[in-house]
Nucleic acid binder design. Structure first.
Lengths: 294, 294
DNA sequence: CCGTCACGATCAGTTTATCTTATCGACATG
DNA sequence: CATGTCGATAAGATAAACTGATCGTGACGG
């Protein structure tokens, strides 16, 4: 009979590729884990692990089973959390993922408030790009992510927090006086600086300026908005700046111009696994985010 | 710590609403089951079952947890089956659901052949309407269903087996000679006989004859095609007959007329849970079904 | 009003599962 | 060839789970 314990041990093997370390991960001794894996192999009648000199590897079947096991364990974890579904929101551990184009600008304002209003919240923050956050959320390594929506994941539930305008940032004094608004279509001739591949902000900026020919795009994307803005300040080009970053990234060597109506925006919101029970947390957090932004 | 055993026992309670019978279902004694349920309630810190005089009922939380438990147990069962994924197809137990407008016409031809070619197949057939089959497949009570596609379930994988033409069946001699084909739009004035609500064939017929006003539809749907055809034979109206039923349902008091091009068809195919490992079975079965139809 | 029944809870004792510690054997590496 | 790493195995301890007997409560019938 397959047990959850066996599945847990198998996923530990899958993560560590090492019996000893997997055992430590599961807080048991190595023989205990070895035996459970053997039991699992016998009850499924398939070899799951290749014990080779030097290192272990999962067989094809082992990888597939480990993958399914991981899904099942996440479902069980969500079931366990469901019990405490009507506890007050924002209490206890919460693993929150945030994309890099939000975290540095929102956290300084949100964290003090969050700590003041919800002192019992044990927040663990992870900052990385959307695709990694999505994977980790699906896998159960995160409880909630804050990113630009939509994510296109039917297994997630989402909640819009607010809209964030895109502005054009250019070197101070480089614009003709009097042109107060910029038409996205008119940006074709400018030198647009962008983040490197993988940042959703890059894709959003490109879709705002869809008329740009690929040749005018800076091939060497920067890895942080801060770097991009320093380039802008020194006249290397222009960029699209999310409004929420304006406070922090804008110096007096840079000026901001709004787009013509309808102004392009990105929708910032929260997402969680449908099977998890984080709606209350998401709603409370979204409310707080709207507050600190105002 | 939640265990699969506890989840199994809970689903048994959910199905039987009775500790004793649930225990029998799980092949344990009642105290064993009672204790596991109590353990589960303690580890989730929620009351799952209301022990009332006379009968037991699940609490709201209990119902939700039982539902999740059932999903998890299905996933585990599929994981267990995955091990034997590359065994020969159509061997061992296979629970197959078939809709009523297919089963009586295809089974007489398919079953002998199936038995001849796959003597080791232990086939259990369930015949009921699509919606029930879909629920049972999702729940893990069936392995495969044969129905009119699409089913609109992203958690299912499907395989088209063949197309089945719709024909018009009317009382013999009731048509004007020489009109060899019927235009779906021209059926507005006829008296269309249909199966009762819930049969997908009824909905398909209605969509073929979309121009029909609701008033001309027979309000008292029959519960079997056979009954409908007897009504047709006696001049009570006409009906749409799937071509595969023609052999069996058509007598010399009934005549069939084909529709004008493009002839309306239904797509018959197989569906299984994405997480299960029934593609090989489905492919083999679809192949055999195409053979016996030819 | 009391005996009986149905049903879930509880208890005691046994069986089974799982764990730990100690050790083995195979294979590297210096 | 000594040493270290790693997974398997063995023996005994501990924990989990089960059975069979029994209890307590409420329903029902005479």
């Amino acid at each position: 009979m397959v047990t959850l314990r066996q599945l847990r041990y198998l996923t530990a093997i899958s993560e560590t590729r090492h019996f000893g370390r997997a055992a430590k991960l599961c807080h048991v001794t190595q023989p205990a884990l070895s035996m459970q894996i053997q039991d699992l192999e016998h009850s499924l009648d398939v070899q799951l692990v290749e014990r080779r000199r030097g290192s272990v590897a999962l067989t094809a079947a082992g990888a597939e089973i480990a993958d399914r096991a991981s899904t099942i364990l996440t479902a069980v974890a969500d079931l366990e959390n469901y019990a405490s579904r009507d506890r007050p929101a924002l209490v206890g551990p919460l693993r929150l993922g945030i994309i890099p184009s939000i975290a540095p600008y929102l956290l300084p304002r949100a964290l003090p408030e969050l700590h003041r209003l919800h002192p019992d919240l044990d927040l663990r923050i992870r900052e990385t790009q959307t695709s990694a956050l999505v994977d980790e959320l699906a896998h159960g390594d995160l409880d909630l992510i804050l990113a630009a929506l939509p994510l296109g994941r039917p297994d997630f539930e989402t909640l819009d927090a607010f809209q964030d305008r895109f502005l054009v940032a250019r070197q101070a004094g480089s614009g003709r006086p009097g042109d107060e608004r910029i038409d996205p279509a008119s940006m074709a001739s400018e030198h647009l600086l962008l983040l490197e591949e993988g940042h959703c902000l890059r894709d959003q900026a490109l879709s705002v300026c869809s008329s740009l020919s690929p040749g005018t795009i800076n091939a060497f994307g920067a890895s942080s908005l801060s770097t991009v803005m320093h380039l802008v300040a020194n006249g290397y080009g222009i960029t699209l700046l999310p409004e929420m970053a304006a406070d922090i990234e804008v110096t007096d060597r840079v000026e901001l111009v709004r787009f013509t109506e309808p102004e392009p925006v990105r929708t910032i919101g929260l997402a969680w696994r449908r099977s998890s029970t984080r709606r209350a947390d998401a709603q409370a957090l979204a409310h707080l985010l709207r507050e600190v932004r105002a």
